[in-house]
Amino acid sequence: MLISQNSLSDYKTRIMNSIHLQQTLPEVFAERDKIESEVWHKDLVFNKKEIYLIEAASGTGKSSLCSFIYGYRNDYQGIISFDAQNIKAMKIKQWVELRRHSISMLFQDLRLFSELTAIENIQLKNNLSGYKSKKEIIAYFEALGIADKLDKKVGKLSFGQQQRVAFIRALCQPFDFIFLDEPISHLDDVNGQIMGELLTAEARQQGAGIIVTSIGKHIELEYNKVLQL
């Protein structure tokens, strides 16, 4: 695995091998009588090097799950732990490190900066770790058929194009797990397939786990496990 120069010296010891959900449940669901889910209120472990698909209907807490694991919401019951550490106890500094080096996230709402160009959006992330070279980044753009959009303001791109930019950004960091929240909702099958290939290649190279969510159309990967949320 590539380690950027910026990473902390104790980075090696920080490698995450598993994400463990113990009886986890969003607080808003707490009052429901019956929960039929393979994720909520269960004992579930996501392991490195494995590929998961979480299928969900709207309103079942798919994005909530992502935000819990990514540390920007903590309104849940139960315990989520990385390896043996309860994430509710983690400090800001640890989260910053994790987001730079251990977990990558493709947000459903992308969280791109519409005032910046596509390449600037990528650089804003890549500058943190210097993980990918500009050449590699451009190769991604070419592979996904948006090489002509490099210097276009992201605000001017279609959602499908933006999804691809956000996807490239998600690959521009070292990670043990990568989360993709509905990554191909606005993509055609060809681009979805290319994205799947790039994702698998990168994850394999890094030895990382992949967790994909979907409410219908899902990216074609060799899933180890499919879970109904």
């Binding site: 920007y72 910053v96 969280r111 992330k125 943190l128 770790s129």
Partner: peptide
Amino acid sequence: TKLESLLLIGYSP
């Protein structure tokens, strides 16, 4: 929103 996004992609406060 921008600040939130920056924090989410790994920028420290």
